[in-house]
Design a protein around this nucleic acid. Structure first.
Lengths: 244, 244
DNA sequence: CGCTAGCTTGACACAGGTCAAAGGCTGTGG
DNA sequence: CCACAGCCTTTGACCTGTGTCAAGCTAGCG
């Protein structure tokens, strides 16, 4: 079950054997959450890296009148709360969309004394500093993509773009086939993510179906023509390794 | 001229006298850029923290068909390129909107040898690790706000929200009055930031004027009723200090 | 003093929202 | 094993926020 975390982090930067071992140890202390459960509230700063081992979640914010905007979809292997820092600064909460299993990294033994060097998020008490930093960069890239979708793309383009993004991320953790994957999201969630109404999400999916670009039944998605989808949505997968 | 950088970083976390001195030293080596100049290209990873001492810029991405989405507006005191990392991952470029003056932090002397500990962005060769991290968090918060604007707010709400955000950020660096500030942005830039057409930005500004919420002439902005604007746009200023 | 970049306005078109209702599914309890 | 309840999807009719096109207007600047 920890394999998804290994695959994701290892893709960002190869893990040392010691690190791999520590990730495997994640499987020993699991926490479960039901759909709808809040994994991280308004401004809780997460002290330690926490990973989703199974299930899907999202980061979101609610407006006073009930409108909801989803910032990002979290899939197995993803870190909850960006690992960023103890300071809230901005309000967003992380909510489970399905049943979710979580695991938290334990601090490295031997650096427990809060000396000047380890205080305040200092030199890496968990041994994953580089990976968490790269993970943060990847997530920032996803946020930028999302901003382009919302600001300058049509419903049709947005939807295609999202499907390609999910496919890419699921493939990274070995949860997607060449052109198919499982997406346990309701059209309401898609709507709140894509900045559309439920009805219009439905109509857009119908259109993509009619155009023979995708097939969707239940949570099963088939991308019939990835090349075409890529052109339509101007999708560009993240570049993980500096091509040296 | 380095005062804006001092004010911004000091607001994130008090600067030590040594750090303050190093910031003042920024004024010794300036670079200038003309409006439209690219300050940071597609995937140039910035090696060192670089600050805008004067002028405005933006981070943006262009779509193949010419559509433009602006991710964020950069004002004096802001860091260019998020200091994040040497890995591109996602494509965005930083462009000067007005004449801009830049300055780059020099590495601390004495840590120049690329040992294992300093390699790869290791323990803070510039002496501003905490501040850059907090700055990154602040910027992430701004990105989240932007996503809500684009995804779930009307043109009217978006525009009000942006004006309040700019006012808050300018006040932080001492460049805004109680209710007025200078905003050297064309309506085209506002449009590409807010995900609207130029024409509609214009109409929305007219509406805000007619409703006696703002006054705008040229680059001079007056917020006539900040309370009302705040309610309309659900604006919540970032929380800088953990309220202990 | 003409040019150009930016602002303003009107008429019209269309993407996407809203409202409403009808079908599926699926799980649960009688 | 059926029936009901609830959630999700689908569809149609209609409305509105925002985009597009086109034309003036203004003001700074060479």
């Amino acid at each position: 079950m920890t394999a998804v975390v290994f695959k994701r982090l290892n893709a960002l930067k190869p893990l040392s054997p010691g690190q791999a071992q520590r990730i495997e140890a994640l499987g020993e202390r699991l926490e479960a959450a039901a759909p709808g459960a809040m994994l991280q509230g308004e401004g809780d700063g997460l002290i330690r890296p926490t990973f989703i081992l199974s299930g899907w979640a999202c980061r979101q914010r609610l407006l006073p009148d009930g409108r909801r905007q989803i910032f990002g979809i979290l899939i197995p292997g993803d870190a909850v709360g960006f690992c960023s820092d103890p300071s809230p600064i901005s309000s967003a909460s992380t909510v489970a969309l399905t049943k979710v299993t979580l695991a938290t990294v334990e601090p490295l033994s031997g650096v427990s004394s809060p000396s000047a060097s380890t205080a305040n998020g200092g030199p890496d008490p968990w041994g994953f500093a580089d990976h968490m930093r790269l993970s943060g960069c990847l997530e920032e890239g996803l946020l930028l993509d999302h901003i382009v979708r919302l600001g300058r793309q049509t419903a049709y383009e947005r939807t295609a773009h999202l499907l390609l993004e999910l496919h890419w991320r699921l493939a990274l953790i070995g949860r997607a086939d060449e052109r198919t994957f499982t997406m346990p999201l309701t059209q309401e969630v898609l709507a709140d993510f894509l900045g559309l109404s439920i009805v219009h999400v439905n109509r857009t999916l119908q259109q993509l179906r009619r155009d023979r670009l995708i097939e969707i039944s239940g949570s099963h998605v088939v991308l019939l023509d990835m090349a075409q989808l890529t052109v339509i949505s101007d999708y560009q997968p993240p570049i993980l390794a500096p091509e040296s």
